[in-house]
Computed example of a mutant assay.
Amino acid sequence: MMIDTPAEKPFHRLLLTGAAGGLGQVLRERIKPWAHIVRLSDRAGMGEAGDGEEIVQCDLADKSAVLALTEGVDAVLHFGGISVEDRFEPIMQANILGLYNLYEAVHKSGVKRVVYASSNHVTGFYRNTEIVDADMPLRPDGFYGLSKCFGEALSRYYYDRVGIETVCLRIGSSFEQPKNARMMTTYLGYDDLVELLRCALFTPRVGHTIVFGTSDNDASWWDNRKASHLGFRPTDSSRRFKYLFPDTAERPGDDPATIFQGGPFVTAGPMY
């Protein structure tokens, strides 16, 4: 059996924001083999620190607190912020101001790599008959999607201006199993999520890369060829859950949730 020695861990300290969230809780243990210390951050409680962990409660809207959060960090996995559709004001504080604070702190602390949890909702107003790649115009489906568009643009700016590399993960639907028929297309299994993070962290040069986070599902709306340098090869698939969603009669053709890739997000905002 191989003994895990400190020399075998490529990072001294990784920062995971949003550690109390759904995906943060999934990643908490799974990323430990990559670093001596995993610094966990969220506004909510995260319990007691385990072996190789640091716990830091932090509001991303607090600029000085975020600066302290990034000190001594080698790379950031940014899963913090609001992850559902909401009013603009709270989204602005967490996902727009909070992300600006994070990148300013990353710059001042000398961090050179960020993996940013973006979302498929930056392109949610493409029809589900279209195939979307990383260079196509953004078409967000709500204020949440708009905030992720801002994040992708902000991270590009910090790469062009000061050389901070970012991989933007346009995550589909990452759950233990698909929750509805739409997620049979957007499903990203947890093992594939971790592998995508590994590729995003360990690829020697990523510049500013956008990659769609999806498993090897039977249907796909997204073309990942422009992120092929990451070497991401999904091994999971939603096809093992086909029994959950047997074929049913089509819903009305004018239902936006079935026409557009964003599904129910396209009608979830306060305009409706």
Rank of each mutant, 00 (worst) to 15 (best):
D62K: 05
E53T: 07
A227R: 00
N180A: 08
V111Q: 02
M2S: 02
G45F: 06
C58L: 01
W221A: 03
D192H: 04
G50R: 01
M92C: 13
V194M: 13
K108W: 05
N224R: 05
R30Q: 05
K112Q: 13
L193D: 10
H107P: 08
L67M: 14
S155Q: 11
Q177M: 12
A7H: 07
Q57L: 09
F143V: 05
G263S: 10
T214M: 09
A200M: 03
E250Y: 08
K226M: 00
Y100D: 14
E54H: 11
P90L: 10
R87M: 15
L196E: 02
V194T: 10
D192W: 00
R170P: 11
R161V: 07
R170L: 15
S173K: 13
A117E: 11
F265A: 02
N180S: 12
S109D: 01
D254F: 09
M46E: 11
K32I: 03
Y144V: 15
R205E: 03
G98K: 06
L60G: 01
L23E: 02
Y100T: 12
E130Y: 15
L188W: 05
A181M: 01
G72N: 08
G72F: 09
F260L: 10
V26Q: 03
L60I: 12
T209Q: 12
F212N: 12
V115L: 11
Y159A: 04
F125R: 08
A105T: 08
F265Y: 04
Y103P: 06
E130K: 14
D141P: 08
G172E: 00
A257K: 00
E130C: 04
E152N: 03
S215I: 07
V56F: 04
G124L: 00
R233E: 06
G269H: 07
H229W: 15
D141S: 13
A65H: 09
D192F: 08
L154H: 14
R170E: 00
A134F: 00
A268Q: 02
L196M: 08
G72A: 04
P246G: 08
L138P: 08
K108P: 02
G213E: 02
A61S: 11
G263W: 15
K112G: 05
K108N: 09
S173H: 08
T166D: 02
R251E: 04
M271R: 12
L23D: 01
K242L: 15
C199E: 09
A61K: 03
N180R: 15
L77P: 06
P256L: 10
R127I: 04
S237T: 14
I164A: 14
L16W: 06
L193F: 05
G172W: 02
P10E: 09
K148C: 09
G124Q: 00
V84A: 13
G18A: 03
L99V: 04
G142M: 01
R127M: 11
E176A: 13
R170F: 15
F241S: 09
G189C: 05
S41Y: 03
E195V: 10
V132P: 01
N128P: 06
L188M: 01
I55F: 13
G231R: 07
T186W: 02
W34I: 05
A153H: 08
G231Q: 06
L154T: 04
V38Y: 03
L138W: 01
V266Y: 00
Q261W: 07
M46F: 01
S119M: 03
R43F: 07
V114S: 01
V162I: 10
N217D: 03
V38M: 09
I31W: 12
R113D: 14
R156S: 04
K148Y: 11
S228Y: 07
R240I: 15
Y158V: 05
L230S: 07
Y187S: 12
